[in-house]
Amino acid sequence: MNNIVSIDKVAKVFRVGDEDFTALHEISLDIEPGAFMSFVGPSGSGKTTLLNLIGGLDQPTSGSVFFKNVKLGELNRTALAEYRRKNLGFIFQTYNLLPVYSVYENILFPLLLDGNKESAVRRSVLDMVDSVGLSDQIKKRPSQLSGGQCQRVAIARALVKKPELILADEPTANLDAENSFQILELMRELNKQFKAAFIFSTHDEKVTKYVNREVGLEDGRVCWDKRRNGSGSFE
């Protein structure tokens, strides 16, 4: 099977003062295209470190991370930047929208970053704004939006360049229950619509209701790896 991400015996050790701290202990995982899954665990369990490694933002101490059979450890800094630009979308807990730009411009930005001209991608941006239900807010700036609306902008920004993989770090942590459900529902719809794989890091139990696969992490080890079966329950 062609996995979109393969993690092969990956370990990550950080130097903290005079001591080594092992954040990940030889983890192996395969993630299929179009997955809608989460890394679940308490703080310090290694969720964000794993997202870092998949996102090409950091390198493992040992083992390898592959994206569609390309070993990320063999890419230089520039190639890793290109890997992220072409293939990944990021969603953050605190949205990280550009405050001086409008909804439309924030969503447009990744396409400009990739060398597109605005006139060539305007339609795509407008469609994406429509997909996240913000057509009537298109000219507003982030400061004029609610938290839920900001996260919708962040989702649209992550998806607009049609990446194959979205990395979402605690995407519902700053939202109330109602907004969290709306956002998760939206991401599940977009996952089906755009076929992009979504990987969440979270300790929010609400996310569990939506994902198709849940990988439990504790002290840098995989404790469980549950997949939803045909009846909708995890096994």
Partner: peptide, 15 residues
């Protein structure tokens, strides 16, 4: 700081 970090994460090269 946040904006520049975001650009790096999104695939902008340092140069």
């Amino acid at each position: 700081y946040g904006e520049l970090g975001l650009l790096l994460a999104m695939g902008q090269t340092h140069a």
